[in-house]
């Protein structure tokens, strides 16, 4: 039995639904020896800002039970260097490149989005309005429906690319923010970014991360992320990219059944670089075993009809 794994993300067609998450796969080349890059559903880059950012001082990461905290702080070479040095080597034939965009101001998001939209090798933009690790990392946009609406509308007006908005889990109610993003023109929503957290070194009696707080990722956050996808699915009618702690195909299926059209593997690539491939194989096997011919038919299937 052949299974149709292709998905349509707001006009962006993917051969399969398993992507890699922003900031966890570098610019692809880092994993070229280990992962068949042409098998990725899509590659999402580390956040790009207008000017280069040096990022936060170290220590930037710390392991936690079944997870990790990171406070990288959007280190990146800046838009022009990204376009000149990174973009040309990013793309594997046939694999869409999605560029994660961050900024300190609405104008910065717009400038980066406008410049990238002119570039043929960029398949879609993912607006990071949810980075918890820099004072001006965009999270303040993502925790308020009105500022989400303004930002997404401003970017929408300069770009015709499929527009993905990556939501923050650090909110009391995600549905109003998801609705605001869609009303302002988002084609797809990514759910979720990292959960704000921190760890304290009890010997030295001080925070472990130089930035004090960081973003929690890994299997520890999966139940929270699945719940958020479930809620967003009930609130909007656009495709969702589900992510947060996916380690196996079964984890990915939880997201799909909760309402995700595609999934992204993040922290799991650090633990096992083969995860993306294993998730894809496992999804195919699940469909075959359960007689499902189109994976898309499973999207949201856990919701009462």
């Amino acid at each position: 039995m052949s299974v149709d794994l292709s998905v349509n993300l707001g006009g962006l067609l993917l051969a399969n639904p398993v992507m890699v998450a922003s900031g966890t796969f570098g610019y692809g080349t880092e994993y070229a020896d280990l992962v068949d890059l042409s098998s990725l559903g899509a590659l999402v880059t580390k956040a790009v800002t207008l000017e280069s950012r040096e990022g936060n001082p170290p220590p930037r990461i710390c392991e936690t039970p079944a997870g990790m905290l990171n406070a990288i702080g959007l280190q990146n070479p800046g838009l022009e260097a990204f376009v000149a040095d990174k973009l040309p080597t990013l793309a594997a034939p046939g694999v869409p490149v999605i560029v994660n965009v961050a900024g300190a101001s609405l104008e910065e998001y717009v400038a980066v989005a406008e410049r990238l939209s002119a570039h043929a090798s960029v398949a879609a933009l993912e607006l990071n309005i949810s980075c918890p690790n820099v004072a001006e990392g965009g999270m303040h946009y993502g925790v308020c429906p009105q500022s989400t609406r303004d930002l997404v509308a401003a970017v929408r007006s300069v770009s015709r690319l499929p527009l993905i908005v990556k939501l923050s889990p650090n909110v009391t109610a995600i549905q109003p923010i998801a609705q605001a993003a869609v009303e302002a023109g988002a084609d797809v929503l990514s759910v979720t970014n990292t959960l704000l957290g921190m760890a304290i070194d009890v010997e030295r009696q001080c925070p472990v991360l130089a930035n004090v707080t960081g973003g929690l990722s890994g299997p520890a956050i999966r139940p929270v992320a699945v719940r958020l996808v479930w809620e967003v699915f009930r609130a909007v009618r656009v495709p969702i990219i589900g992510l947060g702690g996916i380690m196996t195909a079964r984890d990915a299926l939880e997201f799909i059944l909760a309402g995700a059209t595609a999934v992204a593997v993040g922290t799991a690539s650090f633990v096992n670089p083969r995860t993306v491939g294993e998730v894809l194989c496992g999804l195919r096997a699940y469909c075959e075993e359960s007689g499902v011919t189109r994976l898309a038919d499973l999207v949201g299937a856990a919701h009462p009809s």
Partner: peptide, 9 residues
């Protein structure tokens, strides 16, 4: 984290 240059950790 990654050990291969991807995470900047």
């Amino acid at each position: 984290g990654c050990g291969v240059g991807a995470c900047l950790g």
